[in-house]
Design a protein around this nucleic acid. Structure first.
Lengths: 249, 249
DNA sequence: CGCTTAGTTGAGTTCGTTCAACGACTGTGG
DNA sequence: CCACAGTCGTTGAACGAACTCAACTAAGCG
């Protein structure tokens, strides 16, 4: 793909901008040194680019350095379900690395830069840096938690509650990794929201309008502005992420 | 809880009946010896018992030795979403062990025996037996895959497809761990199915009737008899688990 | 025998869908 | 500079899937 660009000149992990964010945990010098060798390059893509494809066998693991993306699956007739969103510090491609084949695809919502790791060195990571292995398990377990909550949402919440939950969730996650400057703008279309909530685009539009009428969000500049994250969480009967400091690779 | 019964006299892991099932991978002698010490006892519960509760802080990890159970979450007004089903060889309680608080509950569908592991020794597992740490990550990643597929199902499949997917999924999983003798009977009620699919019980009943009319299943003896697993998978547009040999602890 | 649980079925209602049309905005090529 | 196409959001109307309510059967159990 022409719009993909792999950059061998990587940002050194020692100067990783994510390490400055209090949301992420500290590394020891040893760990940092290993991760730095584990990282083999960077991948920068435009918004809209499909990075990993369902069914492919990727030899890489990726951590998002900057930007937004999402994971999704398709049915053979084209119906799409967005599974989760990916933000700086998130690891993707673990399933492909650890079990062979990717069972979902990933698409960039904004320009995205990934740190690229070699699957081959994953074994080394576990043998030489058990604490990093533990972190990988932590990350996978955390993703599981989030998927549990999404499942509860799609299965049992009403359309209004679902939409409120999703926006509160995205707002809280993005805030934790400093993705907002002054205003909380989520760079997604109503089609993305519809495909996440399992609703039609028309009904999604009408549901979002209700949230806007309640002054919880505003639709502006091709994105969703969150005005009241806590209010959204209340509508959704959602407790928040309850996640402390977060490891990352 | 009176109906729980912790048995300190454990089945030695060396004679674990699960090891005989080809679906599970081999252990090295060392690993087996460690797991055997990691295991501190067994827990046997009746059908219907709630084993782990959302919000609790469990000091244990469990692997199912025999029986069926399920994981679920509740909304504050009582709406229930079943997240996944748990069968022999499955690990539960990892989230609680690794991140403090359980975010879902677990209830037994049949009499269930669990192997009990100490959370405290989890660090040792990663440092001394990296291959087991890798397996834990594998297990978490596999659970993630399954949740992805469930999300696709609830979000984008029709009621009929959803039901077909769920039953095909349970059938395939249970078959892999020898949970059937001669007939493939799933020990669940229609209420369980409804709470898994995100449907009302009435509509679930009418949907299952359609599957029965097509001779794919039969409802009998308080359970669902799967007559044609492949037929169900076809209705659901589902490819199967595509999982090779599976690690377990 | 009555009590409870699980499954079944019909009738009416609600929520969400599909179809369709339209406006606002963006980017592109002439 | 304008014409045009494409994407995205919005809205109304008609339809259909799934829900609630309610009544009833069958089976298991003290």
């Amino acid at each position: 793909m022409a719009d993909k660009f792999t950059n061998p000149q990587k940002t050194p992990c020692q100067q990783c901008p994510l390490r400055a964010i209090p949301h992420f945990r500290e590394f020891t010098g040893d760990e940092l040194e290993f991760v730095s060798r584990f990282k083999t390059g960077e991948l920068s893509v435009d918004a809209g680019t499909t990075v990993l494809v369902e069914g492919s066998h990727s030899a890489h693991l990726y951590t998002v350095l900057t930007g937004w993306a999402f994971r999704y699956k398709l049915l053979s007739d084209g119906r799409r379900q967005i599974l989760n969103y990916v933000m700086p510090g998130d690891l993707v491609g673990l399933q492909g690395s650890i079990m062979g084949e990717m069972q979902h695809s990933i698409e960039a919502l904004s320009p995205v830069t990934f740190c690229v790791f070699e699957r081959d060195k994953l074994g080394q990571l576990f043998t030489r840096y058990p604490s990093l292995g533990y972190d990988l398990t932590w990350i996978a377990a955390q993703e599981e938690r989030i998927l549990d909550e999404h499942l509860l949402s799609i299965g049992r919440r009403t359309a209004l509650e679902r939409a409120a939950y999703l926006l509160a969730f995205l707002y809280e996650r993005a805030k934790a990794v400093n993705l907002f400057d002054n205003r909380a703008v989520l760079p997604i279309t109503q089609q993305h929201i519809a495909d996440t909530l399992g609703l039609s685009i028309v009904h999604t539009n009408k549901t979002l309008r209700k949230l806007a009428d309640r002054k919880l969000i505003r639709w502006q500049d091709r994105g969703c502005v969150v005005l009241d994250g806590a209010g959204l969480a209340t509508v959704a009967d959602w407790d928040g992420l309850a996640e402390g400091r977060r490891p990352f690779i």
